[in-house]
Design a protein around this nucleic acid. Structure first.
Length: 455
RNA sequence: GGCCCCAUCGUCUAGCCUGGUCCAGGACGGAUGGUUCUCAGCCAUUAAACACCGGUUCAAAUCCGGUUGGGGCUACCA
């Protein structure tokens, strides 16, 4: 039988780490089993569902690379849910009831009384009679789990406004969409017996269940708007690489065994085993994501990074997107690749001196350029001017020759030159900086610090 | 409260099913040192955990029970 899984987000919020990890594991399972990945939008709550959330979810899923084979919206399937609810009423397995008052206890014996003979449609809910029995299932990750349904009260299937409840729509859809494996968060374990009851009442075949451990916020408790539930789109905007984020997600609750950390998606598809997913909730630690992202950044193709970085630079008016030196930007990227945590970082680090001229900060000026270095800078520029190959080794050779001639330590001159050139005390190796800056920029910036004594 | 799930370094985890090879391994983060220029990177070294109590056994991180702790559900939200 063809494996079919689904990811069923509700567009009442952005896609965050937790949701995308669920999506990843579903997608991965489908890929590893040569099955299909269905995306189902659970937008039954018209009030809370927002188009902007839907758009963000779709965009983020696409960005992460989780292509879906089919897409459904529950809001377009209300008639279907009512049809199945009617079947249950006709079979005597469910009943209709007026809306319960907020304080009213949902006592099943009394609520049944007023249910009969009422015409359907106007303000009546359909409620499942919950029989007393055991509801058991064998979870792919956790093994056998059993509930006593005596603790479950009668379940609303269709609300009095005619819309289905989550559990009902979920079961109808999973059955109709021929979902073979329901892979979802831990928080749905206690929904499962309620859903099993619906499958049984309707005589529908049950899928296999696999409940993923939850991802917890650093402060404890589940991820929420206030606690660590950063939208995936924010990671994208900050300049994280999707493959790095996926790698990070992959390791949250699953491990291939052994010491593997950096695992590409192709390999992940080969190695993934749903039965080896952890049972333990994982606490979200962005620090590890940053490390993984840096690993991918170091290995990334500078040209591809440029595609991502150019719009950011243009957005900050650091370059004119229609007229800029792409080769220059690419050479900057090569210089900063290993130094970036995420792509957005590049903009912060490189802009102030590579893409625009910025005055040296006062305290650094005092410390490194307080003393007159006109002679040293002048001699260095003369040497650079003679260079035909303006590359780091050649520049370094000239520099070393100069300090030998002046009989000073290299660092006595390296730091002042870096500050004069970049306005910063830290940065890439000086000779690489000079090579990237080029002869002309170097000359202009160093000349500013040369006092014309004989003028 | 009731029901359910879970429990290895600060964090992600390997090992647990098929007890001995584990005085518990890796990674992130931390600390220290190295890299004839800083930062990043890289390299090396280092601190750091089997929640607790019982039981089974010649032997338990590994099996069983309890306690404690954490999490989830308990809506005409999803």
């Amino acid at each position: 039988m063809m494996v079919r899984v689904r990811f069923a987000p509700s567009p009442t919020g952005f896609l965050h780490i937790g949701g995308s990890r669920t999506a990843l594991f579903n997608w991965l399972y489908a890929r590893s089993q040569k099955g299909e990945f269905i995306l189902r939008i659970e937008d039954t709550d018209a009030l809370r569902s927002k188009k902007e959330y839907l758009d963000e979810i779709l965009t983020s899923l696409t960005w992460l690379g989780f292509r879906w084979d089919e897409l459904y919206h529950q809001s377009e399937r209300f008639a279907l849910y009512r049809e199945y609810a009617d079947k249950l009423v006709a079979a005597g397995k469910a009943y209709r009831a007026e809306k319960l008052a907020p304080e009213e206890s949902p006592d099943l014996q009394t609520s049944e009384a007023g249910a009969k003979a009422q015409p359907r449609g106007t303000g009546q809910a359909v409620i499942l009679k919950v029989p007393q029995q055991k509801a058991a299932f064998d979870d792919l990750i956790r093994g056998p789990i059993e509930f006593d349904t005596a603790v479950i009260k009668d379940q609303v299937l269709i609300k009095s406004d005619g819309t289905p409840t989550y559990n009902f729509a979920c079961v109808i859809d999973d059955a109709l969409m021929k979902i073979t494996h329901v892979i979802r968060g831990d928080d749905h374990i206690s929904n499962t017996p309620k859903q099993i009851l619906i499958y049984e009442a309707l005589g529908l075949a049950m899928p296999q269940f696999a409940h993923l451990p939850l991802i917890l916020a650093k402060e404890g408790g589940r991820l929420s708007k206030r606690k660590g539930a950063t939208a995936i789109s924010e990671f994208r905007e900050a300049g994280y690489l999707p493959e790095a984020l996926v790698n990070f997600l992959l390791l949250l609750g699953w491990s291939p065994g052994g010491d593997r950390e950096i695992i590409g998606i192709t390999e992940a598809i080969e190695l993934f085993d749903i039965r080896k997913v952890n049972k333990t909730a994982a606490v979200l630690d962005i620090g590890k994501l940053n490390w993984i992202n840096n690993e991918y950044l170091k290995a990334a193709d500078p040209e591809k990074l440029a595609d991502q970085i150019v719009p950011l630079l243009a957005g900050k008016q650091l370059i004119d997107k229609d007229n800029f030196d792409r080769n220059y930007v690419v050479s900057l990227i090569k210089l900063f690749q290993a130094r970036m945590t995420f792509v957005g970082d590049f903009v912060e680090r490189a802009d102030t001196f590579f893409l625009q001229d910025v005055p040296v900060e006062t305290k650094d000026k005092e410390k490194f350029l307080g003393k007159d270095l006109s002679k040293e800078f002048g001699l260095f520029l003369e040497r650079l001017a003679r260079l035909n190959n303006f590359d780091p080794p050649a520049i370094e050779a000239e520099f070393r020759a100069l300090v030998a001639e002046l009989n000073i330590q290299a660092k006595e001159l390296i730091h002042p030159i870096r500050v004069a050139l970049t306005g910063k005390t830290v940065g890439p190796g000086l000779f690489e900086v000079i090579a990237v800056l080029g002869k002309e920029r170097t000359r202009l910036r160093l000349s500013k610090w040369i006092k014309k004594e004989n003028g």
